[in-house]
Amino acid sequence: MIEGSPITVANETLAIIETRKLVYTYSGAKKAALKGVSVTIESGEIVILTGPSGCGKTTLCRCFNGLIPHFYGGKIEGEVVVAGHKVVDQTIYELARHVGLVFQNPENQLFALSVEKDVAFGLENLAVPRDEMIKRVDWALQMTGIEDLSERPPHELSGGQQQRVAIACVLAMQPDVMILDEPTSFLDPVGAQKIFEVINELNKELGITIILVEHRLDLASKYADHVVVMDEGKVVLDGEPRGVFNSEKARLIGVGVPKATRLYQILRENGTHLSGVPVTSEEASKLLLEVLKRD
């Protein structure tokens, strides 16, 4: 388990986002929302960012795409480096090419008269040539499986469809990193699974780095390469999912450890050892079968 892991400053690192001792206080706030966050996101991984509400997840995401400090102001110390550039030296528009943020509530992000126009909006802002724009919009709609909705007004769509539109808007910008802040909280489990599958495909097929802010670890865990747990403005756990979920600390902080992992722990407390730590129900069934066959 890597807790408070040291930052590698080597040039040959695959880090796409790196923060060093990041401290941030919103303007007018008494307390810092981030209190020394040092975290490295590697290119191509799917990272789950979780932790108690109010611990600073959304704030950290705002640092990744430059909304902090460029839009929110406040006081920032330490460093945020995205794709090799310091965020403070970049404009929000420059950063948008690297990092796209899908808001928690898609309604707040969609406002155009049609899905197509909404998806084109960001590209217009970047002054992308028209031919290229049409190509990219079609591509983004196709990747998210909503080509048939292109003429529809976004506000008439279901929550799951709106969420896909919001993802398409960000995808059209072809960012290196896509951040999704609790993207499925309004969706029923089947709708949520579909979104996770879209995200997973974008990661596997296009190599887009994914940062997923989630509490619903039961559904999301199986896609993760890396889990970061925050608490009170700090990173408290940082590592691969099995280690993080199985740690005592995760349970103490109140991370919603997957039931598969809980089952493993309770069996262990009762003297039955499975040969690995399961994160998903499929893994748990398989590991259980091993011990059941052994006896």
């Binding site: 089947v190 699974q193 559904l219 039931k259 129900s281 069934s285 259980l288 079968l289 059941l292």
Partner: peptide
């Protein structure tokens, strides 16, 4: 109803008939 069974139910149903 577009929901899923609880994880525990899924784990047990992933086992053969025991």
């Amino acid at each position: 109803a577009s929901i899923v069974s609880p994880e525990i139910t899924q784990i047990l149903s992933g086992l053969p008939d025991l």
